[in-house]
Nucleic acid binder design. Structure first.
Length: 420
DNA sequence: AATTTGGGCTCCACCCTGCA
DNA sequence: TGCAGGGTGGAGCCCAAATT
C-alpha cells in the first residue's frame, strides 16, 4: 500500500507526452483566456521581444540569443538539470541580473504559484541566468472596467522573491521523486492523494485511481479526508466501514440502502420543503458568460454576465407550467434589458425556485453595479427565492447512484468511473 | 476562474468546581 | 481567597461542494 507520493503541485511540469489526453473545449477556453491575459501583460513592457517558440529548438536558440541583449523578454526558455522552464516576462535589472515576472489569471497569490516560480528560477539559475527578484502579476478582482481598458489597473504585481527562495530548497528532492514517478513502469507503487486533483486534475489520474471499487469510501459526502484515512487502513468499500468509525448524519444516511441500491426517503422533510412553495411558483435558471478581462463597461474580472434565462411559471399547484424565456439582443449593456425583463415576468408574489439559487442571486447583484435603479425591486425579490438544492444537500432524498453528490451534473467519483 | 454557504474544526475567553 | 483543571460557547478560519 505504501508508495511514492507525488510532490504536490509540481506534476504539471512532468506529464509524459503519451499520457496527455486531447484538450476539450472547456480546457481550450481556459488556455485562450490565459493567452489573452498574457498578451495584455506584455503591453505593459514596451520594446519587449517575444521568443518564437513554434519549435522547441528554435525557442532555445532565440532565448540564448536575446538574453545577450537587455530589452524585456517574453516567453524565454532555458534548460538545466534535464528540465525545461519558460518565464512569462524577464526584465533586465542591470548588466548581470534579471527580474522574473510570472503572469497568472488568478486574482490572488496561491501556494502553487510560488512552487511554479521556484521551479522556473531554479532551472534558470542552473542555466546560468542570474535572477534578482521574482514577481507575480495577477488580476485585480475589484477592477471596474470603464469604456477603455486599463492594463495598469487590471493587474496587481506582487514581490514574491522571499517565498520563492524559501521554496527553492525543496526543488532538488522533488525532482528526484518526480523522475522516479515519470520513469515508473506502472502506477501500482504510487500513492494517491489530494495532489491528484488539487489544484488541477492530474493527467495521470485515470491511471492511478481505477483500482478503487464501485461504491467506494470516496463517495462519502464531504468526506475526502475520511476516505484517505480509511484507505490507509485498507478499507475501500462503503459497506466495510466499521461501526465505530465516526461519520456525519448525512454520511450515515449514505450507508442506509447502500447494499440493495435503493433510495432513502425522508417524506416528512420533503413535505415540509414542498409546503414552503407559494403559488404562482416561478422556476428560474440563468445562463451567463464570464471573462478574465471584462469586455463590457461597468463589469469586473470574472463577473457573471447574464444573457439568457428560461422561466417556467406554475400558476397554482399541479397546473401546467407556462414557459417564458429571454434572450439578449444587445451587445453593449446586457444587464439593463435582462433586469427589466425579469421584473416584468416575475410578478409581485409567489416563490422563485432555482437550483443552487445563490448563483442566481449573485448574478442579480452583479447587474446592480451598472443598474442601481433596480436595488429596491431586488430587495422585494430576494425573500421569495427558494433553493431546490435544499432537499438534496440535506439528504431528504438520497440514492446510492448519486455517489455522495447533490449536483445535477457531476460527482467526484465520476472522475474515476467516466470511462466505464 | 470566481463565488457563496454551511459544516466542522480550532482557539480562546469565561465560568464553575474542587482543593489547598 | 487563590489557583489549577475541566467544560462550554462564540468568533473566526478553512474546506468542500454547487453553479456558470
Amino acid at each position: 500500500m505504501l508508495g511514492l507520493q507525488c510532490p504536490k503541485l509540481l506534476w504539471y511540469h512532468f506529464n509524459r507526452p503519451s499520457d496527455i489526453p486531447p484538450i476539450d473545449e472547456a480546457t481550450q477556453a481556459v488556455f485562450d483566456e490565459g493567452k489573452n491575459v498574457g498578451e495584455l501583460a506584455k503591453s505593459l513592457y514596451p520594446n519587449g521581444v517575444t521568443i518564437d517558440n513554434s519549435s522547441f529548438t528554435e525557442g532555445l536558440r532565440q532565448s540564448e540569443k536575446y538574453i545577450q541583449q537587455k530589452q524585456p523578454l517574453f516567453e524565454v526558455g532555458f534548460m538545466s538539470n534535464n528540465c525545461y522552464a519558460r518565464a512569462d516576462i524577464l526584465v533586465s535589472y542591470d548588466q548581470t541580473q534579471w527580474d522574473m515576472i510570472e503572469v497568472k489569471t488568478s486574482t490572488k497569490v496561491k501556494d502553487e504559484h510560488i512552487k511554479d516560480v521556484a521551479f522556473q528560477k531554479f532551472i534558470f539559475m542552473n542555466a546560468g541566468i542570474k535572477i534578482r527578484n521574482c514577481y507575480l502579476m495577477f488580476i485585480n478582482k475589484d477592477y471596474l472596467r470603464k469604456k477603455e481598458l486599463s492594463p495598469k489597473e487590471f493587474f496587481i504585481k506582487e514581490d514574491i522573491t522571499e517565498q520563492v527562495d524559501n521554496e527553492i530548497i525543496n526543488i532538488p528532492n522533488n525532482l528526484l521523486i518526480l523522475w522516479e514517478i515519470v520513469n515508473a513502469k506502472d502506477v501500482s507503487n504510487i500513492e494517491i492523494g489530494t495532489q491528484c486533483y488539487e489544484p488541477n486534475l492530474c493527467n495521470l489520474h485515470d491511471k492511478c485511481w481505477p483500482f478503487l471499487p464501485k461504491r467506494s469510501v470516496f463517495d462519502l459526502y464531504i468526506g475526502k479526508q475520511k476516505a484517505f484515512e480509511l484507505l490507509k487502513k485498507g478499507i475501500t468499500l462503503l459497506k466495510d466501514i466499521p461501526d465505530n468509525f465516526e461519520l456525519t448524519d448525512n454520511q450515515k444516511i449514505q450507508l442506509i440502502n447502500n447494499k440493495n441500491n435503493a433510495a432513502y426517503i425522508n417524506k416528512e422533510a420533503i413535505n415540509n420543503f414542498l409546503n414552503k412553495i407559494q403559488y404562482p411558483a416561478y422556476y428560474l435558471d440563468f445562463e451567463t458568460f464570464s471573462t478574465a478581462i471584462p469586455i463590457l463597461e461597468n463589469t469586473k474580472p470574472y463577473q457573471q454576465v447574464p444573457f439568457q434565462y428560461p422561466l417556467h411559471i406554475v400558476k397554482e399547484k399541479d397546473s401546467v407550467p407556462v414557459h417564458v424565456s429571454y434572450l439578449s439582443e444587445r451587445k453593449d449593456d446586457l444587464g439593463k434589458d435582462f433586469m427589466e425583463s425579469l421584473k416584468n415576468n416575475l410578478g409581485d408574489a409567489g416563490s422563485i425556485i432555482a437550483y443552487n439559487a445563490k448563483f442566481e442571486r449573485g448574478v442579480i447583484e452583479g447587474c446592480l453595479l451598472s443598474n442601481p435603479e433596480y436595488a429596491e425591486w431586488t430587495k422585494k425579490i430576494f425573500p421569495r427565492i427558494l433553493d431546490l438544492i435544499e432537499p438534496f444537500r440535506g439528504f431528504y432524498y438520497y440514492h446510492p447512484d448519486q455517489k455522495g453528490s447533490a449536483s445535477l451534473k457531476k460527482s467526484f467519483t465520476d472522475l474515476n468511473w467516466k470511462k466505464l
